[in-house]
Design a protein around this nucleic acid. Structure first.
Length: 400
RNA sequence: GGCGGGAUGCCCGAGUGGCCAAAGGGAGCGGUCUGUAAAAUCGCCGGCUUAGCCUUCACAGGUUCAAAUCCUGUUCCCGCCA
């Protein structure tokens, strides 16, 4: 590759179909229309989502136009990509709320001056049965079943609802509607992006370049980062929370977070990975610096620094954090001058039930001012004005 | 339309009359340890002021001293044939 722009734009990508086409269009000198579908089915933007977004930003920085497709129509079907179950259908209002929240957060990453936002209900809603037949006639059942998750579900005797076949077609048709030059997505989107190419050809356009970005693995170290799995970090999460979560990723993931989160170059990443693999305090140091850089990307360097300090205070020195919610002892837990602690903990949301709270006490997981609590029943005066702690992370100050 | 299979705790999944609040795994939570909210390791994991009691195995009834397990009906799901 001799074209430096091409090189920058394809960095970190998993697949580019086809690189030659991209090179050619860049040569053409016209700003490209770079499409990214936004699936408004959850309210937060995760670090995983940020990966294609940042790629899109790179395109913007090179003078190209970002075309965001809000899948308000398709969200009502639910993208079956990578799913082994039919996704539930959302109501119009839910979709609208999610879209608003997500678009707002996208603003943290994208450049609003080279941005076009389109809702796919614009062209999908008015389609009539005839249009639909034209669209569906361009693809075969065998082609659909090529898709990994469909074929898997099919052979495993799991249901595939007919409307799920429509999803890739609709997403592909979006590319036709906005005349996309490039479409970005996660690797799990490759099939859908290729359908877009196919349909564009069928509708007489030149096929878009499909570019996929690697999927960021979530906090569990196994699955793709996703909100439905709860293994995610949101880009709007508090610095301290973000830093803590980043410190909890398995060591093997540090490399990919360095690349896809801290946007390190390939060379830097492999150096970091070697250090982590060697283990020892240096490994922790690497994880720390990556965590800190990612936090700084979204909250600034100062916030990142204080998040790191707060983390050390709590987990290395085992000190209580500076600020914590102040709460009153729940009345139901009080009898005369004593407090029934399991009831108090459950009521305050520090334990999910009284039984859970009892277990926590039995397991030495509850402390008052740092001292392990062994009794379930304690005097009110022993609680008022003190810091009540559950586990390592949950703190609450009891008002006097 | 015909025939067959299935629905178990947050998820996966064993259990086919009492030994079942229900194996095992995952997730989650707590302790220890540590460079860490990593790893490892030990423990907990329906509810309840807990040697006991209460409510659970799709839903509604029934049989039985006793039902997740047997019977009837209902709902939903899957497969095969058409």
């Amino acid at each position: 590759m001799s074209n430096p722009q091409l090189e920058r734009l394809t960095a970190r990508a998993e697949h580019v179909v086809r690189t030659e086409d991209l090179a050619e269009r860049l040569e053409g000198g016209k700003p490209l229309r770079v499409k990214l579908g936004l699936d408004p089915t959850a309210k937060d933007v995760t670090l995983g989502w940020a990966v294609p977004l940042r790629k899109l930003r790179e395109f913007q920085d090179e003078g190209h136009t970002a075309v965001l497709i809000v899948g308000d129509f398709t969200a009502r079907i639910g993208d079956p990509s990578g799913k082994s179950d039919t996704r539930k259908q959302l109501s119009k209002q839910e979709v609208k709320d999610f879209a608003a929240s997500v678009l707002d957060q996208f603003g943290d990453i994208l450049d609003s001056s080279r941005l076009e936002v389109r809702y796919n209900s614009e062209w999908l809603e008015p389609m009539d049965l005839g249009d639909l037949l034209t669209l569906t006639s361009r693809y075969t059942v065998a082609q659909m079943l090529e898709r990994d998750d469909f074929s898997k579900r099919y052979t495993e005797n799991r249901p595939i609802a007919l409307h799920e076949f429509m999803y890739p077609l609709m997403q592909g048709y979006d590319s036709v509607a906005v005349e996309a030059d490039v479409e970005l997505g996660g690797t799990d989107q490759l099939f859908n992006l290729l359908v877009g190419r196919h349909l564009q050809k069928a509708y007489g356009q030149s096929p878009q370049i499909a570019m996929t970005m690697p999927l960021l693995v979530g906090l569990d170290g196994v699955n793709k980062m996703s909100q439905s799995l709860g293994n995610y970090i949101g880009i709007r999460e508090a610095p301290e929370e973000m830093f803590g979560k980043l410190m909890s990723i398995p060591d093997q993931l540090v490399g990919s977070y360095a690349s896809l989160g801290a946007w390190k170059t390939e060379a830097e990443v492999s150096a970091l990975q070697r250090t982590v693999a060697a283990g020892g305090p240096e490994a922790g140091q690497v994880k720390r610096s990556i965590a800190s850089e990612i936090v700084a990307t979204y909250h600034g360097v100062d916030a990142a620094r204080s998040a790191e300090e707060a983390f050390d205070k709590r987990f290395k020195q085992h000190e209580a954090p500076d600020d914590m919610p102040e709460v009153k002892i729940p009345l139901v837990a009080i009898t005369d001058v004593t407090v029934f602690l399991p009831a108090a903990l459950a009521e305050l949301g520090l334990a999910s039930s009284r039984g859970e709270a009892r277990r926590l006490i039995a397991q030495k997981g509850v402390r008052i001012d740092g001292e392990v609590v062994t009794e379930e029943e304690i005097g009110i005066s022993e609680l008022e004005g003190r810091v009540l702690q559950v586990g390592k992370r949950r703190f609450v100050r009891i008002s006097a």
